[in-house]
Each structure stands twice: as structure tokens, then as C-alpha cells.
Write a protein that binds this DNA or RNA. Sequence first.
DNA 1: CGTATTTGACCCGCGC
DNA 2: GCGCGGGTCAAATACG
Length: 209
Amino acid sequence: MDNLAAIFHYASTSTSPPAAASSQLSLNMANHYSHADHNYNNRYSSSPQSDDDHDLRLIGENRTGGSDNVVVADRISPTTNSFSTCGGDDLNTSTASAKLNIRKGEKKIRKPKFAFQTRSHVDILDDGYRWRKYGQKAVKNNKFPRSYYRCTQQGCNVKKQVQRLSKDEGVVLTTYEGMHTHPIEKSTDNFEHILTQMQIYSSSLEYKI
DNA sequence: CGTATTTGACCCGCGC
DNA sequence: GCGCGGGTCAAATACG
């Protein structure tokens, strides 16, 4: 999970204020994809294909405008090494946040966005949160539509976009926007649970030593 | 019957 | 100003 740690570090050192919120968001992201990893592998563990050993790779930061930045990561198969780096082309962030309305006297504040490319056969990766779909749009130069989701938790304004790349149909690009204001919903049988148990176990070991 | 999804309309920013 | 593309709304529909 070195790459995941790299993403965490990268995001937490981004210039988008406030740094604390950014750090927490990136931590959320790490949680997200820990879950995605776990569920994905569970779901396809019986698959004869062996390209389920994914790696999450940070492929750059897409910064447009003042404070709108997108951390783009890429989950690749180390066996085939066949990831595409078309995130910059297909992720149009110049207008993605244009709808963030400004009321009178308010300054335009763009939330940081974090995008991940995931090599997956399914569009919807189970990241542990409950999402409600509120829109779908055709994307230019892409035969697959982009889906828009909002976190169903009341008061939590986190959004995500999911789209499959037409350049590489095996790659799903997920863009998160905002920060969850609540704990993850699924509490059992997920990677975070396992991680927690591991931490408890390791700390108890330290205690014994 | 309550909740989630679908989908066309609408809004907004941007480039020409 | 106009058209285009992206993002959101909300009524209709589907689903459990």
C-alpha cells in the first residue's frame, strides 16, 4: 500500500486551504479505496482472470483555476501493466466545478476533488458509503455516460462522479468531491474493520513486548 | 408504500 | 449573443 500512502501524503500537502480539511479528506479517500479493494477482491476472487491484483497509482494533479485541484490516481494491473494515462483528457475539470454557485458577497470556493482510475468490470465500486444517483450525462468523446452520485447521509454533501473511459473500457474513473461528515456506514466485514482489528492486535503485541 | 433510479429540462460558465 | 458542454433538479418510474 505504498502508493496509497503516497496519495495520502500528496493530498495532505496540497495547497488547497485549509490544510487540515484536506488532510482529513485524503484520509477519507484512503478509507474509500481500502473498502473498494476489499469488496472488489471479494467479489471477483473466484474469477479465473488473474488481473485482480491492483495497484493504486498516483498519476498527477489536475489543477484548474484558483483552488480547484484534482488528485488523479490510477489503479493498474502490475501483471499486464496496461493502464492508460488518459485521465487528464477525459476528466474535464474546467467546467466540472462551474456550477458551484456563489451567493452575493461570497467568494467562489471550489472544493478539492480527488479522482481515481480503477481497473474494474463494474462501474459501482462499493466504498462503504451509501450513494444516491442524481444525474447522468453523456460525455463528449466518450461513448460511456458519466453518473453523478450524492452521499445519502443527511448533512453530508459529498459527491462523486463515475465514468468509464472509452479509450480503455476496463478503466473506471471515479471523482470524489467534498468530505464525509459521518463515519462509514458499513461496519462489518470490510477492510476498515479488518484494519482496525489489525491495529488492535498489533498494539496489543507492542504492549506485550 | 417508501426509497432509489431514470431522464428530460433547465441552469450556468465559457469560448467564439 | 449564441451554442456547447457540464452539472443539477425534479417528476415520473421502478423496485423491494
